[in-house]
Amino acid sequence: MNSGLSGYLVLGGVCVGGILLFVAAMVARKLLAPHDPNPAKLTTYESGVDPVGSGWAQTKVRYLAYAFLYLVFAIDTVYLFPWALVLRDSRLGVASLAEMAIFIAVLLVGLAHAARRGVLSWVNDVD
């Protein structure tokens, strides 16, 4: 067998196996799960609150600030750890160090922006 195609055969086998396992799980759920619909079970359930009114409510979007901070720290981790692992390689040189300095400077600008907006204060303000 051609060694170039064997990798694709393995990948195809894993994909087919995954699809078969998914189908088997769905069939088992359909056969084994109890089915007892009633009006209470069929109502809309949203975060433990019964839906009343028009469904339109204006809320503050504080999640964006935390998502922004997560991105700053996650991207920092994703790029700094692999770079630190290969730092001992002599071929990286000054160019790699300069690139990381620019990267860290951009992250620090994002962190300074978050600090200026008050996102880093851990005091809960009640509005």
Rank of each mutant, 00 (worst) to 15 (best):
V10K: 12
I104M: 06
V123W: 07
V123S: 14
S47Q: 14
P51H: 15
V109T: 04
I102Y: 07
W122V: 13
S90W: 01
L42T: 11
N38W: 05
K60D: 12
F103P: 03
L80A: 08
V86D: 01
Q58C: 07
T43D: 11
P51G: 10
A67G: 07
L120K: 03
Y8R: 07
T77W: 09
R116D: 08
L20K: 01
V52G: 05
F73P: 03
V126K: 11
T43Y: 06
N2Q: 08
A25E: 09
T59A: 14
V14G: 02
A115P: 03
V14Y: 02
Q58P: 00
L20G: 05
A112I: 08
T43E: 15
E46D: 11
M26D: 10
S121Y: 03
A67T: 08
V10D: 09
I102F: 08
A25W: 13
G110Q: 01
E99D: 10
L64V: 15
A33C: 03
A101T: 11
V52H: 10
V27G: 06
L5T: 08
L21W: 07
Y45K: 15
G118H: 00
W56C: 08
G118P: 02
V61A: 09
A112W: 11
R116Y: 11
V27Q: 12
F22P: 07
W83C: 03
M100I: 06
F68G: 14
S54D: 06
T59Q: 12
L92P: 02
V72L: 15
A105P: 01
H35L: 12
S90F: 04
S47H: 13
D76C: 11
L111A: 10
M26Q: 15
P82G: 01
V27N: 04
L69W: 06
S6A: 11
H35G: 01
A74T: 11
R91M: 06
G7K: 07
S47T: 09
V72K: 06
E46I: 10
V86E: 00
I75F: 14
V16Y: 01
L97H: 08
D50N: 09
G48C: 02
L31P: 05
A67R: 08
S90Q: 02
